[in-house]
Amino acid sequence: MDIIGALTGALHDGFGYLAVSFCLAAIGLNIQFGYAGLVNFGQAAFLSVGGYVMGAAIATSGVPTVLAILLAIAFTVALALILGIPTLRLRADYLAIVTIAAAEILRLVFGTSFRTYFHGKDGVTGFTAGFRSLNPLPNYDGFFLTYSREELWTVMVGWGLVIMISLLTWALMRSPWGRVLRGIREDEDAMRSLGKNVYGYKIQALILGGVVGCVGGFVGAFGAASVQADTFNLDFTFIALTMLILGGAARVLGPVVGAVMFWAILSFLGSVLTQLASYPVVAQFMNADQASTIRLMLVGLVLMLLMIYRPQGIFGDRREIALDAH
């Protein structure tokens, strides 16, 4: 059995573009949920707007990459405003319902409508030339650190963005602005009684988290060289939330470590189980198809154990969880 192979695969996936994309989605959720207490079940919508608007702008209209990126960010801000303005004055549940609905609506629209721009099930392709032309890496055939030249470029840019955005989050969350966000998470009425414009701060948090998610959409699009609607299903947001909880909410590194670990474990279990399934003895009660299902069951088990023995996540503060108990 090839354990080394499984481990390299785990590293490859744990640091790959998909992990970066999820990582940024989770960082956005951390700003919204971890710090400000906003429940956004539609983070996938922000990534899909990022990927689709940018991709379609380049592929159909030949807009320069930088401009397409700015355009996509503008659309993301608009989406956050549309979702936030009517709901953020209401109880927390309303935002959750509206975001989940918006994510599904957008997925269906991208997947079935405006085919000249979004190309239905095929998705948007042919928008990576501008991004790839910036690749400063020397030409090499085959793989370096398990990544091809194009892949490595995307991954490098992706992790650069993760580092920058994490630093920004860290700076913001130790400021009085971040303190207000955490205060809102704890008790909105108390914050109002101290003269804080709770509504305004919640909108800011929703926009900021959405834009970070949108950047994750760019990385995912460039990594896969295509944007497809079905990527952005509800599971997407829930996996990103799982990563956040796994790493530790309201911790700057929580979503980063959560995303890497989640993909690494998923990938490692995947290759080990598939290899096991090739032994005739094991194949009697687990074939290759079942292996991928069992993989998810095992991940679920790991998460359950984590929540039982370390409910605050890997980086979380146990004392905070203890406060919830009473």
Binding site: R179, R182, G183, R185, E186, D187, D189, A190, M191, R192, S193, L194, G195, K196, N197, V198, E320, L323
Partner: peptide, 22 residues
């Protein structure tokens, strides 16, 4: 409410509202 507080009329609550995790 937040504007009222900024004008200088600040209240406390009968059932206290502290920000627990701060």
């Amino acid at each position: 409410a937040y504007k009222v507080a900024r004008l200088g009329m600040v209240r406390t609550f009968q059932l206290t509202r502290v920000l627990s995790k701060l």
